[in-house]
Design a protein around this nucleic acid. Structure first.
Lengths: 210, 210
DNA sequence: GTCTATATCGAGATAGAC
DNA sequence: GTCTATCTCGATATAGAC
């Protein structure tokens, strides 16, 4: 039986390697797609021998599942809760801000998620059918209450959620295009605040909340 | 030398086959990604023998190039011109309507385009750097003039263009997710009009143009 | 727990018959 | 112009040495 120190050390190596693999795999899956990303390319990017990758994850599909799980966790954290007690204005402000910050902080997560959906969401069907559908309906109902109370304009709440999702994620998913058009190499901190300000302003006005 | 009738017939078969291949390839590239789509799977979907595919396009990369070219043509047609003489309100209305209709009519084109950008736009860098950047700058300038003339609110024109792009394309790219959340099998004609109405209303208000 | 060598399989692409 | 057979290569994944 190993002593605590050894177990801890081993656990650290394992955790560290798995994390390195996950990050490397995310990048490869984004750049090359699922089929295009090879175990070798992931290994190279993680600076580990190929066999170690398969030792930790057994096969390529398992790596992808782990990446997707990580992505969904990001989605969940970045969703920014919409609380009844905030009222429509603060709720929308918080929601937009959370989504924009998430997009700029974890663009790969957004990209992997986007590619998975575009390709038919074969691995995420359950997630959308259960968790996500429920989330959207709950929040839509909340918006509808605010509308019925005359606290905001009568706009379709579901399309409002789609609008906020699309507009915010766009800065992650279409990063390459946006940077090229703006003739820049990278985003700057200022961009994040600009986008938050722009989208908040536009959408609040759209909802009659300025 | 062949007579006219034979040439025409041959040309028809060629054009027909190439078109069938392009459509089949588009679907396969969306569903499986570039690497995941095999020449065989494209052949099966096009109901043609594999060798015919390679006879018409020489190799897989050429098929992809043809698909991308077709996609850019769609983009160009669907862009909906923004004309100075329309004034901001009609211009934005036309632009949104054109983009939404394009998204619902040719979702695969939007998806292929989106995947290409997400993966780093390796094949589209030139397009974005030249044609698209120029287009965005021209239109941004036009919006800026309207703003300077007091014809619309002072919003960042570039972000406004990104907002319209993202919000409209979302219905094509995230089709799967949206249908699942709405618990529907397919879009209906009504949805197109709903989305046009919703987005036009929201964005015009955001621009102070209602 | 780490890494090398290799078996196996599937995909791209070509040669050549029809 | 159409299709069959086949060559070749590269990727997954395993066996087994260290």
């Amino acid at each position: 039986m190993k002593n605590n120190k050894e177990i801890k050390k081993t656990g650290n190596i394992r955790a560290l390697s798995q994390h390195k693999i996950l990050i490397a795999a995310s990048t490869e899956f984004v750049l090359q797609g699922y089929k295009g990303a090879t175990v070798q390319s992931i290994a190279d990017r993680a600076s580990l021998p190929k066999a170690n990758i398969l030792y930790y994850f057994k096969n390529k599909e398992n790596i992808y599942h782990a990446v997707l799980e990580h992505t969904l966790q990001m989605w969940d954290e970045g969703i920014g809760d919409i609380n009844p007690e905030d009222g429509p204005k603060a709720a929308i402000e918080k929601f937009i801000e959370a989504k924009v910050r998430m997009s700029f902080k974890h663009p790969e997560s957004s990209k992997i998620y986007a590619m998975e959906i575009i390709q038919g969401a074969q691995h995420l069907k359950d997630f959308a059918r259960t968790y996500q559908r429920k989330w959207v309906r709950e929040k839509a109902q909340l918006f509808q209450q605010w509308i019925d109370n005359g606290e905001m304009r009568d706009v379709n709440p579901i399309h409002l959620i789609f609008l906020i999702w699309s507009a915010t994620q766009h800065y992650a998913d279409f990063e390459t295009q946006i940077l090229t058009i703006m003739n820049r190499a990278d985003y700057e901190d200022e961009d994040v605040e600009d986008v938050i300000a722009f989208l908040t302003d536009m959408i609040l006005r759209g909802c009659g909340l300025h």
